[in-house]
Design a protein around this nucleic acid. Sequence first.
DNA 1: ATGGCTTAGTTCCTAAGA
Length: 256
Amino acid sequence: MKIVSYNVNGIKARLPRLVEYLTEQQPDIVCLQELKSSDETFPEADIRAAGYGAVWHGQKAFNGVAILAKGSDPIERQRGLAGEDEDEHSRYIEAEVDGLVVASIYLPNGNPQPGPKFDYKLRWMERLRTRAGELLAEERPVALAGDYNVITNDDDTFSVRAMQDDALMQPQSREAYRRLLAQGWTDSLRTRFPGGGVWTFWDYQAGAWQRDAGFRIDHLLLSPEAADRFVDAGVDKEYRGREKASDHAPTWVRLS
DNA sequence: ATGGCTTAGTTCCTAAGA
């Protein structure tokens, strides 16, 4: 079973690319981020026509997450994270598909740092860790898939120097990610490529794609029960080079 | 990057992204 995390950067602008991806790759589960679409304008009919059921948590213009399942309707379990009532960003949705618990995560970017956006990022990571702990306690297969906006190691970026002041690479961001992993999660892509050097994002600017100047920020975390079923992980990098591509590439893990 | 693209919306400029 192939589980994908894909930050589409606008589902309306990316719909032909997304449908093409679903048709060509036939993934079983797809977690989308950055829909930039309200709940009402989510293109449910087009996705259903491609053979996928969906649940989504939209927001006008920014954020927005969804979970797609091939040939079935995901059963929604939760939208949003507890712990901050005034938070209206649509960044978390969780559902059950085929006995597997799946979350689609769009973690705050946090730039510029320091500042209120960075503080929000760190608070959100703590709220995520609280939910992740609850999920681990269920002792069942769980995948936390999404755009974490954290470059977790120095070998996860084309240039440490270019990114050193960025919120994605601050020690506080990395420590929060490590605290999450330390609960017992497995970073799929890191397991498959322990030496790093694998990117999931390439900026639209400054010829980043042409220079292969990317970094790894889209992660699929597995509970021990899911990690037992790990087969392979990778990035469908080719889709970043296509016409009207997102700045992220689909990132995936395969489970038995 | 003091922002060189791209997207969406109060659309012909501004905000946000990473």
